[in-house]
């Protein structure tokens, strides 16, 4: 049984009469200790998926799913209180912008001890010792002094390390990292990513790594899910997906990577934009931007076909031999 299992998750915003689709019929399963990458452009529904999982979608947003279970327990049927107990303890999350994700009125130590106190309790002294230990684990130099520091005194990379320390404070079994390196300087990105993966390996956590950077995923993830406009376009093992992309969108993303464009005069790009709230095409969502689009793609929306872990949502997959009808 997978650690996390989501079936048919949909998230809508807007009014019930005029709903705006953010995530549409998404299935996702993550095993214990597994690293799953979720890739897509801005607005593809990656972040919304993780927020829905955490129960952080507020009205007017609406979440519906056939199943959403963690460790065999149904998250949707749970009382709010019980679900909160899971958050921060068994499921933790780190966000894109670490600087604004820390409360400017509280010190690093306040943040850590509060989380530890809420979930595990203990004397002030013990909590402080644990907090110090956590800062050491995320490789923050001079942790005693940092404990008393306020967020505005930290750099972006340091803040993200604090966020990671907060996330791993209660030994979570699933860590959701939503674009953990996007807001950081390029030189710091690799360090933070390395830290995340080391902690994942050491602790055997499952890691859900959300990013728009395929390069990050290629080196780290066991499995990959490609999202576009709220839909899953393709899933597969990292190896398969990067060597034999089935979906034209995955292929386009890969060919837009700078390292695949060495020697070319212009970086390959994907023309057009992700469809907006009120202009979702009737057929395949990618059709207006797809170089292989045919008449059927304009009129009929393809279903997700194939057997996990390899699935693709396309009428005309590129390496069709991999898919069993």
């Amino acid at each position: 049984m997978p650690l996390l299992e989501i079936k048919n998750l949909s998230v809508h915003f807007g009014t019930p009469e005029r709903p705006v689709v953010a995530v549409e019929k998404l299935d996702l399963a993550i095993d214990a200790g597994e690293v799953v990458g979720i890739v897509g452009e801005s607005g593809s529904g990656k972040s919304v998926t993780s927020l829905a999982l955490m129960g952080l979608i507020d009205a007017p947003g609406r979440v519906s799913a056939d199943a959403c279970s963690f460790d065999g327990r149904d998250l949707l049927a749970m009382k709010k209180r019980e679900r909160r107990k899971l958050l921060g303890r068994d499921i933790a999350m780190i966000f894109q912008d670490p600087v604004t994700s820390l409360n400017p009125c509280f010190t690093v130590g306040d943040h850590l001890t509060e989380t530890l106190a809420v979930h595990e309790g203990g004397s002030r002294k013990a909590l402080r010792a644990r907090a110090l230990e956590l800062l050491r684990q995320v490789e923050i130099p001079d942790p005693e002094r940092r404990l008393a520091a306020y967020p505005h005194q930290l750099s972006g990379g340091m803040s993200q390390r604090v966020m990671i320390a907060l996330a791993i404070a209660c030994n979570p079994r699933l860590l959701i990292a939503d674009e953990p390196t996007t807001a950081l300087d390029v030189t710091v990105q690799a360090q933070v990513l390395e830290l995340l993966l080391r902690l994942q390996r050491e602790r055997g956590m499952a890691l859900m790594l959300i990013t728009h950077d395929l390069g990050v995923i290629a080196e780290t993830a066991h499995r990959v899910m490609v999202m576009y406009a709220g839909q899953v376009m393709e899933t597969g093992t990292a190896d398969d997906l990067f060597t034999h992309p089935q979906h034209p969108y995955t292929e386009a993303l890969l060919s837009a990577l700078p390292e695949n464009n060495v020697g070319r005069e212009r970086l390959q790009t994907i023309p057009g934009m992700v469809p907006g709230a009120f202009d979702r095409p009737a057929g395949c969502l990618l059709a207006p931007r797809c170089q292989y689009a045919q008449a059927r793609c304009q009129s009929e929306r393809p279903a997700l076909r194939g057997n996990p872990p390899c699935q693709v949502r396309c009428h005309f997959p590129l390496h069709a031999d991999g898919i069993k009808e």
Binding site: P271, G272, G276, D279, P281, A282, G283, A293, Q298, S299
Partner: peptide
Amino acid sequence: DNTAVADPGTL
């Protein structure tokens, strides 16, 4: 957004 649309008739 419309600039990316190939065939507006079926939208």
